[in-house]
Design a protein around this nucleic acid. Structure first.
Lengths: 331, 331
DNA sequence: TCCGGTTCTGACATCGATGTCACAGTTTGG
DNA sequence: CCAAACTGTGACATCGATGTCAGAACCGGA
């Protein structure tokens, strides 16, 4: 900026005025400054500006997700970006791989960069470490999973209700022996989905004692192996509820390997790409990651705009999409 | 930092020394400063540091992709993030939706934030506007598509060779009338793939005059409709080469709608999730987005570490994965 | 005891911008 | 015609950190 000022033969403050469109600069001066800035390819330093500015905003958001490589996170990220873009806010994203140790490190990296707000998919046991930051006024929104030990805005899918709907769907086709394939139990949504599943069975009067409930599956392979073992056991289920997309894919592979994909019913939680082109198509309870992202960003910006209301939980509904795999009746 | 210094009863420079692990601070003072910093939940301001620091690095990278919601970009993003993480560098990502107007705006937003390097998927006609930045020493890596008017590192898939391999594969099954479904011709990779396709036909001595070459398809729907029109025409092709993943999906849907998915051969460029579970499985020429991302990040950091060699183009090989759809012979 | 060399520490300028304020020159209104 | 108000401009402090430098306290050796 100093260089621009020197080249234009004006004071740096006048350059600042031109760059920021402040009034009271003559047309001639403005033109001279513009020309100088262009010829030097000048881009104002947002961080330096932020340092002095009254509101101290960095026009930056931090996003913590499972992995930026996963479609659910990607869709959320995109929705957040779209809203942030309209305000000139840039988004940092960081992948956690559901590893609690990385959570606090990643948050700290964002805080050091003075993000205006944080949108996070929780992994660790407690988010108490965020309390000082919350008190400092940094808007916080938890997405996909509910936090522990912090009161803030939360945007989640209706996990229990979605799981219940999936279960009800299988029950209504006459299934009674429905296997549950679940993710690691330290993941909050995994618990919720299991709860929804079991409660729905309870409501239907199905004894849950000998229902196969398998948890701790965190990838395709584990799900695949678990399902095969189950189907080869003495009392195989007639239907399967796979409570996460990778698990669903693992389950589909397992069913195909045993040639049972037209025999055993399957409903998955979370949509899977191309699920409609498989034979049979995979029936799923779909989440709405774009809507989750959009809402989260909306909350952040509302807080930045001065909303001081108490933290609220926003529940985004899930949708049962029937495609064939979930409508087969028990043999 | 001033507050920490006051609370610990030392000068701010001493706090700076403790935070940065500089030598010559007594154990007692260090402990006092640490305690004060903890009790105030102090996070040093990276931007302020960056302002004064000799190297002027912001520990930040800018990434421009098609869309953070698309799996190809996601995989690339993830690989870049993983490498960046090992150096404490955070990554900004921005989606362009292949819209040239957004490119320069997004780059400018990154430049204002003083990113240490830029990794970009080019959309606009010319990247000449980046020359001043390049001269200034900001490392630039172009990924997926080659730039125009700028000499820098480039990491791309072997588009022409991949397309040629796909074409060869179809030719070897006896197909002669192979349709080409392509993306917008202003996208550089789309051109390359078309070139690879046509050249391979030429090498095989197939007259390209009456080969259906359709371009300008940018989404599933357009591809779907184009293929259906083609198959219902007077001289339908016996095989299809769909040169991009959304086009492949649209083509698969088209074939199914007409009941021709076991009759017309199909090879796609770019892998598609769950392609192996379809019937028939989709034969594709797969790219390696993780490797592209990894290489790009590696180049950026090499430049930051002082590599001054001339810009080079790195070509990441593609891989033909046969799954059924590409191995059907013409009827 | 005194000297030179460490070790520890803080005052101050600085990075690139903005906020405040003072000041000169130009209008405007009575 | 002069005071008041407005317009256009730049000097300087400031944001939160680090780099420089100088000074105080302490050390060991002659």
């Amino acid at each position: 900026m100093k260089n621009v000022a020197a080249l234009a033969g004006v004071g740096i403050k006048t350059v600042s005025r031109v760059i920021n469109g402040e009034p009271n600069v003559s047309a001639v001066t403005t033109a001279r400054v513009r020309a100088a800035a262009d010829s030097l390819d000048f881009h104002p330093d947002l961080h330096a500006r932020n340092l002095r500015r009254a509101d101290g905003r960095s026009s930056t958001l931090g996003l913590l997700v499972g992995s930026v490589g996963n479609p659910f996170s990607g869709a959320m990220h995109r929705a957040i970006e779209d809203l942030a873009n309209t305000r000139g806010v840039a988004v940092f994203a960081s992948s956690l791989d559901d590893d609690p140790d990385r959570e606090e490190v990643a948050v700290s990296a964002f805080l050091r960069r003075r993000v205006d707000g944080l949108i996070l998919t929780t992994v660790s046991k407690s988010q108490g470490y965020l309390l000082p930051e919350l008190r400092r006024g940094t808007p916080l929104v938890f997405v996909d999973r509910e936090p522990a030990g912090v009161e803030a805005d939360v945007v989640v899918s209706d996990n229990a209700a979605g799981a219940a709907a999936a279960t009800r769907h299988l029950l209504s086709s006459g299934h009674r022996r429905i296997a549950f394939l679940g993710d690691r139990t330290d993941i909050q949504t995994a618990q919720e989905r299991r709860r929804g599943f079991l409660e729905e069975l309870g409501r239907a009067g199905v004894a849950t004692a000998d229902i196969p409930v398998i948890t701790g599956l965190h990838d395709e392979d584990a799900a695949n192996r678990a399902l095969i073992a189950l189907l080869e056991s003495e009392h195989p289920p007639t239907a399967v509820f796979s409570s996460q997309n990778l698990i669903t894919i693992g389950a589909v592979r397992g069913l195909r390997e045993l040639g049972l994909h037209r025999t055993i019913a399957l409903v998955g939680f979370d949509d899977v790409p191309l699920a409609d082109l498989l034979e049979p198509g995979i029936t799923v309870v779909a989440q709405n990651p774009s809507e989750i992202g959009r809402l989260a960003a909306e909350r952040i910006f509302a807080r930045l705009d001065g909303d001081r209301s108490a933290g609220r939980t926003y529940v985004v509904p899930t949708e049962l999409i029937t495609r064939g795999s979930g409508e087969m009746r028990p043999k």
